[in-house]
Simulated assay, not measured.
Amino acid sequence: MRGYLSHDTVVEVPAAVIWDVYRSLELGRLLNELLQDVIGKIEVVQGDGGVGTILNVTFPPGTPGPSYMKEMITKIDDEMRVKEAEVIEGGDKDLGFVLYRRRLQIIEKDAESCISRSSVEYEIDDKLEDIASQASTKPLEILAEVVGKYLKEKRSSSN
């Protein structure tokens, strides 16, 4: 069984500004600073933030399911402003997903705002169909809202 979920979040920050953060290790640093209690702690296992980088995410205490996941960045497209990562260990893999790919895309709306498109693509054995309902874009939506708000405030305070 295959599935796909997508959600758009309007962010009041220029596309280039938010992409500079999303495409780099700065995103993990910001998540550790702003969302550690919601998403967890992110550590670089190997790599420099580019394709092939492996990240370890330790979920906050009390989070149902697996306590961690490792994901590998599989795509960074600066022209289309797309970043993809696949879970390679723990997390959604431990729940039974054969493939669990997160995708962030930044779409320019106008000079001062953009759309952060969060999507999840997954594959799961047909016998585990009930687990497919656990696939969610919610963590990516929260990421877009919080990072967008942080960058907007940072821009406002520096003007």
Score class of each variant (00 low, 15 high):
140 L>D: 15
152 K>C: 04
144 A>Y: 07
149 K>N: 09
154 K>Y: 08
153 E>I: 03
128 L>I: 05
143 L>F: 04
139 P>R: 02
134 Q>V: 08
131 I>K: 12
137 T>E: 10
133 S>V: 05
133 S>N: 06
140 L>K: 06
125 D>P: 14
153 E>R: 02
154 K>L: 13
140 L>V: 10
129 E>F: 15
127 K>P: 00
138 K>Q: 12
141 E>Q: 15
129 E>T: 12
147 V>Y: 01
138 K>E: 15
142 I>P: 08
149 K>A: 11
134 Q>H: 09
140 L>C: 13
148 G>H: 00
145 E>A: 15
143 L>V: 03
147 V>H: 06
129 E>S: 14
147 V>A: 12
132 A>Q: 12
132 A>W: 11
125 D>S: 12
124 I>G: 05
147 V>G: 06
139 P>C: 09
136 S>K: 03
129 E>D: 11
150 Y>I: 01
151 L>S: 12
128 L>F: 00
128 L>T: 01
149 K>L: 10
153 E>P: 02
137 T>F: 06
153 E>M: 11
139 P>Y: 03
130 D>T: 11
152 K>Y: 00
149 K>W: 07
124 I>W: 07
143 L>K: 04
150 Y>T: 00
143 L>E: 01
149 K>G: 09
152 K>I: 02
130 D>V: 14
153 E>W: 06
132 A>F: 10
129 E>G: 11
149 K>H: 13
151 L>D: 03
123 E>K: 04
141 E>P: 04
